[in-house]
Design a protein around this nucleic acid. Structure first.
Lengths: 222, 222
DNA sequence: CCAAAAGTGTTGGCTGTACACCCATGT
DNA sequence: ACATGGGTGTACAGCCAACACTTTTGG
């Protein structure tokens, strides 16, 4: 059984090429960043796009997204959730299921290859992207901002132990606005999703900060 | 170019059968209902499932869902939104993109056909469903409940003019819990999404109720 | 001793919730 | 006249936002 041609402009079976794409988000130095891939072949050669790829035989959507995430970053067991599904991102009738993931940049080892190099990009300075990927990213960021308010998703953006200031900086980077320190601490601590580790860490020549841990390192909604 | 067989348990191309399924929701007499189809052929023959079907050539996902909704109910221009995408609902490697829709039952004319008859079913009395469709419905209802709190989606469940009591009954049917009348009216009116029509209607032998209209008959988030 | 970030409480406004009675109509 | 649902206001509590100073450390 031969494969139908993948390059003709319109597919001639009712089956579709199904791909997953993954919006991999991190925060570093108070800046939101997204992982992009430099396209070194195919349509949109030399422009940037989100990492993605087709499903392989027998693979579920989540498996494909998990695999893709690990290929690019080496990380597993982070927050990874379906976002939405697009048709018409290319003009080939394919269907793309977008996922989004949150990773701690320190735990990432970017894939090193000659072609299709991944790189972090500030969300404030996104280049032109292939396949309308900018709307996918916008979508993911909106979801992230909403989800901050009623879930613990940030567990996946930080190391296992962190200070409240770090957590606050993460929130501020995502929301693009400063938060009041006392109100933030009150709110977060009263949720009861954190526990103190008893340890402290000083970064630079300052007073050392108490370290906290998320009680659950998996998604919880309040 | 031959089509690959659709009946073997595992597909042997990386292309997938892509279908949309639609959770069509309505409220009547204080009861949430979902449109189901009696399967009269194929897998799960004689059990119930959500209406759905494959994409046709050149069709987008939203177009497919819109078409399916209109085929079953005759209605267009109602609230229709993507829900989420499943792989593994059957064991054939297909991918199903679920949508959900809200319709005013009075404006619906159910498709009449000899086979695959559609029928309304109370969500409190769902039969066993094919293809794990029960989880899809649960998902849609959860989304609806959440969305009640910050959007005007109910515009699509009611006739163009309605009383506040009708609106409240709709909310109660969805949330499965009674609401305080005065608080409900205060809350809804203060949102400013309704406008009084100036007209009234009495149903039965009661005091006639003021009628209202949604300012926007399309989704708005507060 | 100085710079830098950590840590800590109180107040006022607003929002949401609980709660009960009178009114207009049709029969 | 009465039964039925329509319509209305107040008081209290909990939540969120605004706001400034002291403490601890490293250099």
């Amino acid at each position: 059984m031969t494969q139908p041609s993948r390059t003709t402009a319109q597919r001639n079976t009712a089956d579709r090429l199904v791909a997953v794409i993954v919006v991999i988000i991190t925060v570093e130095a108070g800046q939101l960043q997204v992982l992009l891939i430099k396209r070194s072949a195919g349509p949109f050669k030399d422009s940037w796009s989100l990492p993605g790829g087709r499903l392989v035989e027998g693979e579920s959507l989540l498996e494909a997204a998990t695999r893709r995430l690990e290929i690019e970053t080496g990380v597993k067991d982070v927050f990874l959730e379906q976002l939405c599904t697009f048709s018409g991102l290319d003009d080939q009738g394919s269907v793309a299921v977008a996922y989004w993931a949150l990773v701690d940049k320190a735990s990432v080892r970017l894939a090193r290859r000659d072609v299709w190099q991944p790189a972090w990009c500030l969300t404030s300075e996104l280049p032109d992207l292939a396949f309308k990927n900018d709307s996918v990213i916008e979508n993911a960021l909106t979801r992230l901002r909403n989800k901050l308010a009623y879930s613990n998703v940030t567990y996946s953006l930080l190391p296992s132990e962190f200070s409240l200031s770090q957590l606050q900086q993460t929130y501020e980077a995502i929301l693009l606005s400063p938060l009041d320190k006392r109100n933030f601490r009150k709110r977060i601590l009263s949720l009861g999703v954190l526990e103190a580790t008893g340890r402290s860490a000083s970064e630079g020549r300052h007073r050392p900060a108490k370290l906290y841990r998320f009680r659950e390192r998996r998604p919880v909604v309040y």
